[in-house]
Amino acid sequence: MTAGEQRGRRRDLDVLGVIALGGGIGSIARYGLAKGIPTPAGGFPWATFLTNVVGCAVLGGLMYLVLDIWPPSRYRRPFFGVGVCGGFTTFSTAMLESRGLLASGHGATAGAYLLASVVSGLAAVWAGAGAVQLVAKGRKP
């Protein structure tokens, strides 16, 4: 590894730190929501579904702010986008829950869950970005 590569890696440790901090915050929020909305065996996993839809909406709005409104920042996007939203959302858990529903004979619930998760997640990103865009345009002179 060259000296320049070593400096580059050390320089990125601060970004990794803000991602880790944001990820911890997002993960704790997700854990709290999961504990607050338990899923019965074979039931629709509402906690994970709501977590992912809310996270997608927040990410859509956040990315509009980060890319189009706020001035450039080294830490904002990694902290909020990768860290907080990445730690909060959990599409991997949605896939595991879908597999569990299929394995336990709840194929219809698994299918509805998968379809609703993808469609609602995409719609939430669009709606979150649109809502923030409307608010931002309403505040401009």
Rank of each mutant, 00 (worst) to 15 (best):
W46Q: 12
S92D: 11
W126E: 05
W70M: 14
L114S: 14
A57R: 05
S117G: 15
G111N: 08
R30T: 03
A20Q: 06
W70Q: 14
K137R: 15
R30M: 10
V58C: 09
T90P: 00
R10L: 04
L102G: 02
A110W: 03
D14M: 05
V54L: 13
T2L: 02
R139E: 02
R139A: 02
S73N: 07
A3V: 04
M95Q: 10
T48S: 13
A108E: 12
A3G: 05
P78F: 01
L115F: 15
I19E: 01
T2I: 01
Q6I: 12
V53C: 09
Y31Q: 03
L21F: 15
A131G: 07
A116P: 15
M95Y: 04
A57D: 05
R74D: 06
G24H: 07
E5S: 07
R76K: 14
A123E: 09
G100F: 01
P40A: 13
G130C: 06
G81V: 11
G60Y: 01
V18R: 01
Y31D: 05
N52I: 07
V125G: 10
L50N: 11
V58M: 11
G61K: 10
G81F: 05
G111R: 09
D12G: 05
A116M: 13
G32I: 12
W70V: 09
G43V: 01
P141Q: 07
G107F: 13
V82I: 13
G107P: 01
C56P: 00
D12W: 00
G83D: 09
R10Q: 03
L50V: 14
G107W: 15
L62N: 00
T48A: 12
V84I: 13
G43Q: 10
L21C: 08
K35I: 04
L13D: 07
G55Y: 04
G87F: 13
L96I: 11
C56Y: 00
V125P: 01
G60V: 08
T89Q: 03
G86N: 09
A112K: 07
L65S: 14
L65K: 11
L96K: 15
S73Q: 04
N52M: 13
C85G: 10
Y64D: 06
G81D: 09
